[in-house]
């Protein structure tokens, strides 16, 4: 692992860490959604500070170059994020349909009641 890659890892960890803390302080993000990013930031920082982690892990997993382990971890993290995002997205779409349908139903109910009241008045 080159020193350049380690520096990049640290910079990325630092920037994303700072950004997520900033969002939390502004109360712009939910607790549940920060867990992943705090974890990812810590993992990136650890890999940048202690290259031995990548060396050992690469040897154990039979990966030729330690740097490939770094890439593999990032792909794994992104994969996990994509999976959960996709599931959340699916649920949001479902909720959105539900919300529209319920709203239409209730509006109709209200309109009918108002019409009835008007008729009674006349």
């Amino acid at each position: 692992m080159s020193i350049g890659l380690r520096i990049i890892l640290l910079i990325v960890a630092l920037l994303s860490g700072a950004f997520i803390v900033y969002r939390i302080r502004r109360s712009k993000v939910r607790l549940q959604d920060t867990l992943f990013w705090v974890f990812t930031t810590v993992v990136l920082a650890l890999m940048g500070i202690f290259p031995q982690i990548s060396f050992t892990a690469a040897r154990l997993l039979g990966i030729q170059a330690p740097v490939n382990f770094v890439y593999l971890s990032m792909i794994a993290l992104l994969f996990e994020k994509l999976l959960t995002l996709s599931i959340q997205h699916s649920k949001l779409k479902e909720d959105y349909v539900e919300l529209a349908a319920e709203l239409a139903l209730r509006c109709k109910d209200l309109e009918e009641q108002i019409d009835k009241l008007k008729q009674d008045k006349e």
Partner: peptide, 16 residues
Amino acid sequence: MMHMVYGIVIFQWFRR
């Protein structure tokens, strides 16, 4: 439990 541990041990210190 995971959320609670994270929320109490880590998350709360980031909040204003």
